[in-house]
């Protein structure tokens, strides 16, 4: 018989609340909270993708915001060219081409940077992934045609008939379904033979190598999957904000993604989702009181690192099962 653990219950409750509350907010006239929930769910997809490498793979990627930016530009640039001409090869309003570009370019970027980054380990890996993220940041910053520093307004959302992304509830539902699929994909990967090798390499790389596994290949594959997934989240975020700028891919954004994973609890399915929720709600709550909200926010972040090692999931799960 199916035996649900405390963490499984937590996952169910959180995911159900996330499904039911936002439409209720919309119908009671609080559209703002639906939009907040949409941003939350999209960032949760990014956090879930980061958790695959950071949590299960032990690969502390400090450059994951780059994929969000790549994904959002993969929507912005085709729309820009379809509207204003030029660059026929990518121009278009269709969601298909946007998502394809977001996922494929993110995967290629992850393949190249991962191939170099994974030759290093420990703190070198953290810093080199951060530097590659900044490389992508400066790349988009220096292209004047796409707005450079000012960013690019996405005039028209991706077209995906019969759906309409201009409808906030439909956009939310697409994001929500994507999140559920992302969580299932990560869960399936983690529980597969592939995922076992990945987690084994996190625990003791030499042991796995001695057992005959090419752990470099496993890590690189996980890194590429994670990057592609995060790029997809970026395409959704571009559609949500209808704006993309290099600021979305700066290193502090990558730091925020890492914080979401740790705040919620790495190496759990629901952790990154709860982390993203905690992050967004805390940000919203604090910034409604003061423009200096980064001060208490930073203090809370420090407190989480110092005292709450299992994250939110660890707090709720407690010592029992």
């Amino acid at each position: 018989m199916l035996q649900l653990t405390r963490t499984d219950w937590l996952t169910l409750v959180v995911m159900l609340a996330l499904l039911i509350l936002p439409p209720v907010f919309l119908w009671t006239g609080n559209e703002f909270y639906l939009l907040l929930a949409t941003r939350l769910v999209i960032l949760a997809i990014a956090a879930v993708s980061l958790n695959l490498v950071l949590g299960y793979g032990g690969l502390v990627s400090f450059g994951h915001a780059a994929y969000i930016g790549i994904g959002a530009y993969a929507v912005g640039i085709p729309v820009y060219h379809e509207t204003y001409g030029g660059f026929e090869a990518v121009a278009g309003y269709g969601a298909g081409i946007h998502i394809l570009l977001a996922v494929v370019i993110s995967a290629i970027f992850a393949l190249f940077t991962g191939a170099i980054s994974l030759r290093t380990k420990g703190v070198y890996f953290i810093m080199i992934t951060m530097a590659f993220g900044m490389m992508a940041y400066y790349f988009f910053l220096s292209i004047d045609e796409y707005g450079g520093d000012d960013g690019l307004v996405i005039d028209i959302r991706s077209e995906i008939p019969p759906l309409n992304l201009d409808n906030p509830l439909q956009l939310f539902m697409i994001a929500y379904v994507s999140l559920v699929i992302a969580m299932i994909v990560v869960k399936t990967i983690v529980n597969s033979r592939f995922g076992m090798v990945l987690q084994g390499a996190k625990g003791n790389n030499e042991r796995m190598v001695t057992m005959g596994y090419n752990t470099y290949f496993y890590k690189l594959t996980a890194y590429v999957i994670s990057g592609a997934m995060c790029g997809y989240a970026g395409a959704l975020l571009g559609n949500f904000t209808t704006f993309v700028s290099p600021d979305m891919m700066g290193w502090s954004r990558s730091g925020e993604l890492m914080f979401m994973v740790i705040l919620g609890g790495a190496t759990t399915a629901i952790g990154p989702v709860m982390g993203a929720a905690g992050f967004i709600l805390l940000e919203e709550f604090l910034s409604s009181y003061t423009i200096f909200w980064h001060l208490p926010f930073g203090l809370i972040l420090i407190a989480v690192v110092l005292f709450a090692r299992g994250g939110l999931v660890g707090l709720i799960k407690g010592k029992g099962k």
Binding site: V123, I126, F259, H294
Partner: peptide
């Protein structure tokens, strides 16, 4: 190192806002 990065990331927010 992950904790170092996150802890000092929080510290940046605190110092910059101060």
């Amino acid at each position: 190192h992950l904790d170092h990065v996150l802890g000092t990331f929080g510290l940046i927010l605190v110092i910059d806002t101060s």
